Computed example of a mutant assay.
Amino acid sequence: MLKKCISDPSLILPTESVRIKDGLSYEEIPVQILYRQVCRLRTKEVASVKVLWRNQFVEEATWEAEEDKKKRYPHLFESGGNADQGINFLLSAL
């Protein structure tokens, strides 16, 4: 049996702002580094960063390896984008 679906208009993204390729895919671009943490293992330390992506909400930010993101997106690390700046930016946007 089918149930009535109530849509949430706040979850709809405008299609003009998303550049869709011929294969119906698009590239996510990181906007900002929100947080940085270092996990200490027995023999090494692993640094990871929480990345805010374009066209996604803060709740959907993902943890990524810092080394990989520095190689691919060095501009995110040049401005000294630490966690305090990222959080203050997001709070001011609200």
Score class of each variant (00 low, 15 high):
residue 2 L to I: 06
residue 3 K to N: 00
residue 4 K to M: 13
residue 4 K to L: 13
residue 5 C to L: 14
residue 6 I to K: 11
residue 8 D to C: 04
residue 10 S to W: 06
residue 11 L to H: 07
residue 11 L to R: 06
residue 13 L to C: 11
residue 14 P to N: 15
residue 15 T to C: 13
residue 15 T to N: 12
residue 16 E to R: 10
residue 17 S to L: 12
residue 17 S to I: 13
residue 19 R to I: 14
residue 21 K to V: 01
residue 21 K to F: 03
residue 21 K to E: 06
residue 23 G to I: 04
residue 23 G to L: 05
residue 24 L to H: 04
residue 25 S to V: 14
residue 25 S to N: 09
residue 28 E to S: 08
residue 29 I to C: 06
residue 29 I to M: 09
residue 30 P to L: 02
residue 30 P to C: 05
residue 30 P to A: 06
residue 31 V to W: 04
residue 32 Q to N: 11
residue 33 I to S: 06
residue 33 I to M: 01
residue 34 L to Q: 12
residue 34 L to Y: 05
residue 35 Y to R: 15
residue 35 Y to K: 14
residue 38 V to W: 01
residue 39 C to N: 12
residue 40 R to A: 02
residue 41 L to Q: 11
residue 41 L to M: 12
residue 41 L to F: 14
residue 43 T to H: 10
residue 44 K to E: 02
residue 44 K to T: 07
residue 45 E to H: 08
residue 45 E to W: 02
residue 46 V to M: 07
residue 46 V to K: 03
residue 47 A to C: 14
residue 49 V to A: 09
residue 51 V to R: 00
residue 52 L to D: 10
residue 53 W to M: 08
residue 54 R to H: 10
residue 54 R to V: 00
residue 55 N to T: 00
residue 56 Q to L: 10
residue 58 V to G: 01
residue 59 E to F: 08
residue 62 T to R: 09
residue 63 W to G: 02
residue 63 W to M: 05
residue 64 E to C: 09
residue 66 E to A: 14
residue 69 K to H: 07
residue 70 K to L: 12
residue 71 K to N: 08
residue 72 R to F: 12
residue 73 Y to G: 07
residue 74 P to F: 01
residue 74 P to A: 00
residue 76 L to V: 03
residue 76 L to P: 06
residue 76 L to Y: 00
residue 77 F to G: 01
residue 78 E to Q: 12
residue 79 S to L: 14
residue 81 G to S: 13
residue 82 N to I: 05
residue 82 N to Y: 06
residue 82 N to A: 04
residue 83 A to F: 10
residue 84 D to N: 01
residue 84 D to R: 11
residue 85 Q to F: 05
residue 86 G to D: 11
residue 87 I to C: 14
residue 88 N to M: 12
residue 90 L to F: 10
residue 90 L to Q: 03
residue 91 L to W: 03
residue 93 A to W: 00
residue 93 A to R: 12
residue 94 L to F: 11
residue 94 L to G: 11
